[in-house]
Design a protein around this nucleic acid. Structure first.
Length: 317
DNA sequence: ATCCAGGCTCCTG
DNA sequence: CAGGAGCATGGA
């Protein structure tokens, strides 16, 4: 095993602790390990599993991030890939000030943001993982979606071992294809989901879906490009562009959760329609993805607290 | 039990 | 072209 390390100075202010809290409560995060020291996760860089660790030092206004990569053959190029990946996932190079100014103009969104100084979105670790998660999440409750993701990981994902600990490595498209529709069906994936997953994996493996190319397209083109595949509708395309590739100005208005919470705050509790969400979200351009992240964070925290309650972890005072 | 869930496709009228 | 049924499965 070789190690290399470096440091990232993010655009300030940056509340890394908020990002970690988000990951800890996010149902989509099954690969990340979060502890007092920071963030740990295995990525695949140039066909090699690499453990990436990021710890924070300093304060919100003086944040510094220590990055370490561990793997069989890690060199400067691998370290660079890790840094680029982390910058993308945590939006480290984006100046959050314009978004902050925008939220101040919207008292409702601004009210949500007041306790989140230095917060910025956290993307899903890898675009393919975002695509898989979006397909899994279609039309089922999140708790079950997480179970399915864990199952998929157990069925065809690799494991990376280091220092007595094991870290899951998200399956490559080829591994999901090799698993096959039958196996997925046996594991509670509906026929549709199984088909969509295989179709999407094939498209990624063949290069028909090219994430790198998508990042350079306009929103419209990228969306259309994804939606030509069966099983990838508008919501899924928007979700992947936003949470997988970091498109900054997308509102996945078809999302029931968003319709719900935006209705709560902007329509006196009545669920908003897709069109209404798009209309309301225009005010948040060009930061619509960031606003969506904030709303999702609210939903997620509420859901997390509720679950804790149910399982009796939090006792009523 | 009953309704619904971080949708999508396909089929009506 | 808007609206709705059907899908397939588990959570609350």
């Amino acid at each position: 095993m070789q190690k290399k390390q470096t440091e990232i100075i993010p655009a300030q202010p940056y509340a890394f602790g908020q990002a970690l809290a988000y990951i800890r409560t996010s149902p989509s995060s099954i690969l990340e390990k979060i502890d007092d020291h920071g963030y740990h996760r295995v990525f695949t860089f140039t066909d090699q599993p690499v453990l990436v660790q990021m710890n924070h030092e300093g304060s919100i206004d003086n944040a510094r991030l220590k990055v370490e990569v561990i793997g069989d053959h890690v060199d400067a190029a691998i370290l660079n890939q890790a840094v680029d990946t982390l910058k993308r996932i945590f939006c480290l190079t984006v100046d959050p000030e314009p978004f902050h100014l925008l939220t101040v103009k919207d008292p409702i969104l601004g009210g949500q943001m007041s306790s989140y100084r230095g917060l910025r979105p956290v993307l899903i670790g890898d675009p393919f993982e975002a695509l898989v998660w979006a397909i899994i999440g279609q039309q089922i409750n999140i708790t079950f979606a997480k179970k399915l993701k864990l199952k998929l990981q157990g069925l065809c994902g690799d494991t990376f071992h280091f220092n007595g600990k094991s870290y899951p490595v998200f399956p490559k498209p080829e591994q999901i294809i090799a698993l096959g529709e039958e196996k997925l069906r046996e594991n509670q994936f509906s026929r549709q989901k199984a088909q969509y997953l295989i179709t999407a994996s094939r498209a990624v493996a063949s290069g028909d879906i090219d994430f790198e190319a998508l990042t350079h397209m306009s929103y419209d083109k990228a969306c259309q490009s994804l939606m030509q595949f069966k099983g990838l509708g508008r919501w899924t395309a928007e979700y992947v562009l936003m949470r997988g590739l970091g498109f900054q100005d997308i509102i996945p208005a078809g999302d029931l959760g968003l319709q719900d919470i935006i209705g709560q705050f902007y329509k006196h509790g009545k669920r908003a329609t897709e069109d209404e969400v798009r209309q309301i979200a225009k005010a948040w351009s060009p930061w619509r993805s960031w606003a969506a992240f904030v709303w999702w964070l609210q939903l997620q925290l509420a859901h997390f607290v509720e679950q804790k309650h149910r399982s009796g972890v939090i006792s009523d005072e």
